[in-house]
Lab assay of single mutants.
Amino acid sequence: MVDYIVEYDYDAVHDDELTIRVGEIIRNVKKLQEEGWLEGELNGRRGMFPDNFVKEIKR
């Protein structure tokens, strides 16, 4: 799994989504079957977030 950095703020709409803020690092990200969404861990919580608000961290 890979990590992503947040490029744009996003406020969660549903309980299974993450609220993300610019500059945060989302860890252990995986792609979901639902197009346009990823799932990852942030601040001890796992949830979904839109893939166009983040950028993969290349290592």
Rank of each mutant, 00 (worst) to 15 (best):
L38K: 07
W37I: 04
I5V: 11
E7Y: 09
D3R: 08
Y8Q: 14
L38C: 09
V54H: 04
G36A: 09
V6H: 01
K31I: 15
K30I: 07
E39S: 12
Q33T: 14
M48Q: 13
I25C: 05
K58N: 03
D16C: 15
I25H: 10
F49V: 12
I26T: 03
E24M: 05
A12T: 02
R21S: 05
E56F: 03
Y4N: 04
E34F: 11
K58S: 09
R46C: 06
D51M: 10
L18V: 04
V54R: 03
Y10E: 02
Q33I: 06
M48F: 09
K31H: 14
K55F: 00
Y10F: 08
R46E: 05
Q33D: 15
E35N: 14
K58Q: 15
K31Y: 09
D51E: 14
H14D: 11
R45L: 08
N28Q: 10
T19N: 08
Y8D: 09
E56K: 14
Y10D: 04
R27Q: 10
R27A: 08
D3Y: 09
E35V: 12
K30V: 09
W37Y: 13
A12C: 06
E35G: 12
L38Y: 07
D3C: 08
N52P: 12
V2H: 04
L18I: 08
L32I: 08
P50I: 01
V13Q: 07
E7V: 14
G44V: 01
E7Q: 10
D15E: 13
V54A: 07
K30A: 09
V54W: 00
I20T: 02
K58L: 02
E17L: 01
V29A: 12
E56S: 07
R21F: 00
W37E: 01
R27K: 07
K31G: 11
D15Q: 13
Q33L: 06
E7S: 08
V6A: 11
H14R: 14
E34A: 12
E7K: 11
I20N: 02
E34V: 13
K55I: 09
V2P: 09
N43H: 15
Y8I: 15
A12R: 05
D16K: 11
E39I: 10
E24S: 07
Y10M: 03
I5L: 11
E41N: 06
E39G: 03
G23A: 00
D15A: 13
N43F: 05
V22S: 11
L18P: 02
K55C: 13
E34I: 15
V13S: 15
G36M: 05
I25F: 03
E34S: 12
R45A: 07
V54I: 03
D51L: 13
W37M: 08
I25W: 04
R59K: 14
I5A: 04
G36C: 05
G23W: 00
E17G: 06
V54P: 03
R45Y: 06
I20P: 02
V22D: 04
W37K: 04
I26C: 04
I26N: 00
I26Y: 02
V2K: 15
E34W: 12
V29M: 01
V13C: 12
I5T: 06
G23C: 01
Y8M: 07
R45N: 09
L42I: 14
R21E: 06
H14Y: 07
F53Q: 06
T19F: 01
L18F: 01
E17K: 04
H14P: 00
E34R: 14
R59A: 06
R21D: 00
R21I: 00
K30W: 09
D9Q: 12
V6F: 04
E17Q: 15
F53G: 10
T19Y: 01
Y10L: 02
D15R: 10
E35S: 11
L42M: 03
L32H: 13
K30N: 11
R45C: 14
R27G: 10
F49K: 01
D9R: 05
A12I: 02
Y10R: 13
E39V: 09
F53Y: 10
E7H: 03
T19W: 00
D51A: 14
F49Q: 01
F49C: 04
I26F: 01
K55V: 09
I5R: 10
E56L: 09
E39R: 04
L38S: 14
M1T: 08
D3F: 03
K55D: 02
V2A: 11
L42W: 05
G23V: 01
W37P: 00
E41F: 13
N52T: 12
D15Y: 08
T19M: 02
I5E: 07
H14T: 13
E17T: 04
K31S: 10
V29L: 03
G23I: 02
I26V: 09
N43Q: 07
Y10S: 00
V6N: 00
V6T: 06
D16I: 08
R21Q: 05
L42N: 02
K58R: 13
F53T: 15
I20E: 00
G44H: 04
R46I: 08
H14F: 09
N43Y: 12
E56I: 07
V13G: 12
K55Y: 07
W37C: 03
G36S: 06
D51T: 14
K31R: 12
H14Q: 11
V22H: 09
I20M: 13
D16W: 11
E56D: 06
R59L: 15
V29T: 05
N52C: 12
K58I: 09
Q33P: 14
I26Q: 02
E24H: 04
R27D: 01
E7R: 11
E41Y: 04
E39C: 13
E7A: 10
V2L: 11
D3E: 14
V6W: 00
R59F: 09
G23T: 02
Q33W: 04
E41K: 01
N52F: 15
L32V: 15
G36H: 08
E39M: 07
D51F: 14
D16E: 11
F53L: 15
D9S: 09
R46L: 08
N52M: 10
I20A: 04
N52K: 15
K30M: 14
V2I: 14
R45T: 11
E24Q: 07
R27Y: 07
G23E: 01
D15G: 12
E17W: 00
K55Q: 14
N52H: 07
Y8S: 14
V13H: 06
E56V: 12
Y10G: 03
E7D: 07
P50S: 06
D51S: 12
Q33N: 15
Y10P: 01
R21K: 07
V13K: 11
K31V: 11
T19I: 02
G36D: 04
V2Y: 09
G40V: 01
I26K: 00
T19E: 01
H14W: 04
G40H: 02
D16F: 07
R27L: 08
I5P: 00
R45W: 02
M1F: 10
D9Y: 01
V54S: 06
K31P: 15
E17C: 05
M1R: 11
G40C: 02
Y10I: 01
D16V: 11
Q33K: 12
L38R: 03
H14C: 15
L32P: 10
D3P: 05
L38Q: 05
A12E: 05
D15H: 11
G36I: 03
E17Y: 02
L18W: 03
D3V: 05
R46S: 05
Y10T: 01
L32E: 11
V22F: 09
N52Y: 08
M48K: 15
F49P: 01
E35T: 09
N43T: 03
D16N: 13
V29R: 00
I25A: 03
K58V: 06
K55R: 14
D3H: 09
K31M: 13
D51C: 09
